[in-house]
Nucleic acid binder design. Structure first.
Lengths: 216, 216
DNA sequence: ACGTCTATGGGGGTAGAACCCCATCATGAA
DNA sequence: TTCATGATGGGGTTCTACCCCCATAGACGT
């Protein structure tokens, strides 16, 4: 537990709209030496305000909150308090969402299903200047490399297949011929290694395309 | 806040393998007058032991824990402490799982995404002798009535479709002819009001057939 | 006994999906 | 300039799903 510069107390802000999670997280933070909870927020706007007011060393950020999304809070944090490290804390396990966050340069990423030891390890690592992506998240992203092989057009066709459209309907919607739809369709399913629409839907599910509800 | 018999303190056990949830839930329980936390458990076996030892008035039970599932804990609770009320507390939102629990006679059901006020209301209601199913869960179950129309055979065929099998493959696996597969297939898709495998997969997703990971 | 439902299965036909071949054009990188 | 890739699209064929008709047998309730 060795934050640089000796006994300086590191400040932490917790942003999550669920009190259950905030309370549980506070307990874990309290177990880390030389840290202090300087604020908490239950929605996106409060989170932005807390970051502006406290300029914390660390922000624990829920992905989706009312009034401003995790992405927005993250952007404002970078603008108003660029020294603040950010740890994403998400109940979502969709690969698409997680891989988007990887590219933001965020310092840490955790699933809410991670155990307290792991959460503590992540927080300490990030406060010590390192990065920490939960192993579970790393594994999930590895399984998503095939998706990144798809061209933009193939993704569009896939999303319309997933939405239940026939090839003819897809052609109408994209203003292309059925032959072209068949082409893209065959190509994307080959890249993803699937032979049926059912299998394709499982891939879409893993990418979070079927999710419409939030998990804690 | 009027538990019968005046100032008797009601005892509560919390069983959840995630410390975050246990800590957050403890805070809510602490906010309810005349209740006392008599134990907590982080896996199924501990939960069973806690119920046996404490005979609590209320058990807050996570659906899936290591070493013994929620179903098993529930059964043991009914056996060793039949006076104990049980509130299910789940991060899963799959309709199939929730509808199964409805039939157990459980006293309360909550999603972990429910707000603290709602959680408190549920706990108080159950401690007062009533039942409480979160409105979100009630809504979800209403949308699942079509599924209950399916015959056993239709479900079997559906599960094999969902798994990506062709009609021929399904026939082989169930030792029936393709004609029969087609018959069941057309029938189940008609009952569910879907015209494509993609649409069918969305139904399967809502039933929890695609889920293989636990949400907090 | 009769009616309903479920499970089973056949014949026949058609539309759509899947897949093979071929091709052109535009863009970007080497 | 050449090459590779992506987007587009045609011809042709086979296979599968879907849908219509028909039917039998068994179980269950009235």
């Amino acid at each position: 537990m060795d934050f640089s510069a000796g006994d300086i107390v590191k400040t932490i802000v917790i942003a999550d709209d669920h009190q259950i999670v905030r309370e549980g997280t506070k307990k874990i933070v309290a177990s880390i030496d030389n840290t202090s909870l300087s604020g908490e927020a239950e929605n996106g706007l409060e989170a932005i305000a807390a970051v502006k007011n406290h300029r914390p060393d660390l922000l624990i950020l829920d992905v989706a909150m009312p009034l401003a999304s995790g992405v927005e809070v993250f952007g404002e944090t970078r603008r108003w308090s660029p020294e603040t490290k950010v740890v994403l804390f998400t109940g979502f396990t969709s690969v698409g969402l997680l891989s988007n966050w990887i590219n933001t340069g965020i310092e840490g990423m955790l699933l809410k299903s991670c155990g307290p030891e792991q959460i503590r390890e992540c927080l300490v690592t990030v406060l010590n200047g390192g990065n920490y992506i939960a192993a579970e998240i790393v594994d999930m992203l590895k399984n998503s490399e095939d998706m990144s092989e798809l061209t933009q057009r193939e993704r569009e066709v896939m999303s319309l297949i997933v939405a239940g459209n026939s090839n003819a309907e897809i052609g109408e919607k994209l203003f292309i011929s059925i032959k072209t739809v068949e082409k893209h369709r065959g190509s994307l399913m080959g890249k993803l290694g699937v032979r049926s629409v059912a299998d394709l839907m499982v891939v879409a599910h893993k990418e979070g395309w079927l999710d419409e509800h939030k998990q804690l």
